[in-house]
Amino acid sequence: MTHDAASPPYLQVDDLRVRFNTADGEVRAVDGVSFGLHRGRTLGIVGESGSGKSVTSLAVMGLHDPARTRITGGISLGGRQLVGLSDGDMRKLRGRDVAMIFQDPLSALHPFYTVGRQLVEAYRTHHPDASKAQARQRALDMLDRVGIPQPDRRLHQYPHEFSGGMRQRVMIAMSLMNDPALLIADEPTTALDVTVQAQILDLLADLQREFHSAIILITHDLGVVSQVADEVLVMYGGRAVEHGTVAQVMRGPQHPYTWGLLASIPSLHGDPEVELKPIKGNPPSLINVPTGCAFHPRCAYAMKPEPCAAQVPQLLAVQADGHRVACHLPEPERIRIYTDEIAHVGVAQ
């Protein structure tokens, strides 16, 4: 990640740990995740359910219930430490410096107020001096910018009067009202049809170029990541297992879990009769994360019991610049396995 390497990243997450207390025991939702993100870059966080990808982003937003959540580590946003920040200070930050787009815009928008009123309110929360007319103008501009036809008419409509794709555009417009430097999109296109998904992804990319914001894109879809992200963070069992540029992770993945993900998705190219290679077993419960490397019970290359079942592997840099992998296998061995056994099957060819 040579991009802006001289300046510190806009978002820096250090050894983030998020734990919840539940009746069944402590849930280690995020267990020591570190990464940095510069403005103008898109980070795709990929993982399955329970991987901790959404919890990580909610921690950045400061949206966890403090009564039952313990967050340790560091989250620095534009040089400001967010962990331990008061609720009031965090509220000032949210929407202005960091905004979020959810998977289901219908439940994230208030059903009883017009879209215009919600946009205006979002703007005036952070611009108390702005007049209503100014805020309204801003709302119109943003709706127009996200590609909603006839914005002056749509301003007076309620969320349910918009189609799924248009609603997500409204959500994006809302998140951009205050020109945030960091935008977190949690599965923004999962509920959408593929032709609409393509529109929304294009829109996000355009807006990023224009506003020069940092984007975290949380998704389970490697295809989406491969299209829009600059960097990829693969998460499993609450930990980061691989981090690198999209090219590094897509062309030369070094973690067995990443291999498994790539080999288990069918493609529009290649021989459709070739069997998919699923990862055996199920994702782990976060209450009872396997010892050592969380992936070792499902890993075909694990060295058991030592060290894979005993020690948690560190996310360490490999030879390629900026590419980090958390795996006990020696790097030459990983490269050999990937080129000999993985690369030629499925989509990775």
Partner: peptide, 8 residues
């Protein structure tokens, strides 16, 4: 419109 990993 399909985002395909293989087409990366």
């Amino acid at each position: 419109a399909v985002p395909d990993v293989a087409a990366f």
